[in-house]
Design a protein around this nucleic acid. Structure first.
Lengths: 225, 225
DNA sequence: TCAAAAGTGTTAAGTTTACACCCATGA
DNA sequence: TCATGGGTGTAAACTTAACACTTTTGA
């Protein structure tokens, strides 16, 4: 180490990943029931340690991959959690991220192996350390982003109905939306494309399936629900 | 160290502080021209290293205090900057913060001692490492916050004119505001109080001085410019 | 006397909200 | 046949944007 830095303290740095999924009209988090110490049996978000030679963003992707087998996932940093006693065992800094995943895609075996479960966001158990604050901040940050950028589509399948889309935004913004007003706005966004296909699973009548066209969005990025 | 953590890598952690100030109708940053290695002579934001036994937030306050002599300053975390090669000398993680200070309050001697200068935000020199990205993200985060919470007052003196306030928000939002519309909105916010005092320094005619009443704001926090 | 910033209301345009009924189908 | 979610338009309320002249006073 260069002399300039050599008398400075060094720290363990963890990555913690708040993983959002959407199914059955509800927002869920992928949480681990720890089968290892410390705090065996308690609930936490998925974490791991930063390693020499990897960036924080890469480490967060690795941690997500280890649990879900997914790559190229929408992730954002929530921030650094740096309270001295946040981990009672040892001084550990943690960088929290959130991820939005399509819930049909993840690797069931990996998740089972980690003893992880999808928990409805309205029925969260107590979490270890400062993980509840991480979840709160992740949700808030995601909500703000979702209000002005079309990130919600990362939580939906490739093809989705307007009913699903509306329900997603009702859950994200935590309040009912008017169906006609909602559809009026969607119709104005050219990057939300009707595919011609019909979904028969959600309703008896069947509903038109739509797709988010990210190239069209980049050409004309006007999003506001 | 407990056995569970002992084989994990450890990291140097820096704090970097993007310090905003407002005077002469312009937004400025307090930047250091480094008179020490590495990168002597180059420009950077104020930084320091995290120490054992202090939280990241406390360390950021310390770093700000060391440069300005100010305490109880509005600060927000921008995020962790964790690229592997961000500091070419050594692997150093950095947690960036931004601070909003009343520019008439800081300690001139400390600033001089650190070889720091107020630089107009539109005339920034190249900065070392990833400090330009820190500044960009800090500005963006501050802008978003300033749009829905009354944090701008941290950049103004206790007493200010409506002209100063409007100019501040024009600078923050980077565009002209209509004077009559602006004043109409300010008049609706009961926590922006006319003091009865008159400022004669900004104009020949004199302008009414206002004050931000934070207790009144907490009672009825409706802010939107 | 004039330059410079302070102060003051109204109208048009645009956006948001509220609201109710028919449709197609599987059970 | 009925319960379920899909699909559709209009009018009122509200918000935002545009706009010009008078006042005061120090230089």
């Amino acid at each position: 180490m260069s002399p300039y830095y050599k008398d400075k303290d060094q720290f363990l740095v963890a990555l913690d990943c708040v993983i959002f999924g959407f199914y059955e009209g509800e927002l869920h988090l992928l949480l681990l029931q720890r089968n290892f110490e410390p705090d065996r049996g308690k609930w936490s978000v998925m974490g791991g340690f930063l390693q020499k030679g990897e960036s924080a963003d890469d480490a967060a992707k690795r941690v997500l991959y280890e649990l879900t087998g997914l790559q190229d996932v929408y992730m954002e940093q929530v921030g650094l959690f740096g309270a001295v006693d946040r981990d009672p065992g040892e001084r550990v800094l943690s960088v929290a991220y959130y991820a939005l995943i399509k819930i049909e895609d993840y690797d069931r075996d990996l998740v089972k192996k980690h003893n992880a479960f999808w928990i409805n966001i309205h029925q969260l158990p107590p979490l270890i350390f400062d993980h509840e604050e991480m979840v709160r901040k992740a949700r808030e940050k995601m909500r703000i982003k979702a209000a002005c950028e079309p990130i919600g589509f990362n939580l939906l399948p490739e093809l989705f109905t307007l009913g699903q889309l509306q329900r997603l935004y009702e859950v994200l913004f935590d309040g009912p939306l008017d169906k006609r007003n909602f559809r009026k706005k969607v119709a104005e966004m050219d990057f939300i494309e009707k595919t011609g296909e019909i979904d028969k699973s959600c309703s008896k009548r069947g509903a038109a399936l739509y797709r988010f066209n990210d190239k069209a969005y980049l050409k004309d990025p006007r999003f506001k629900l």
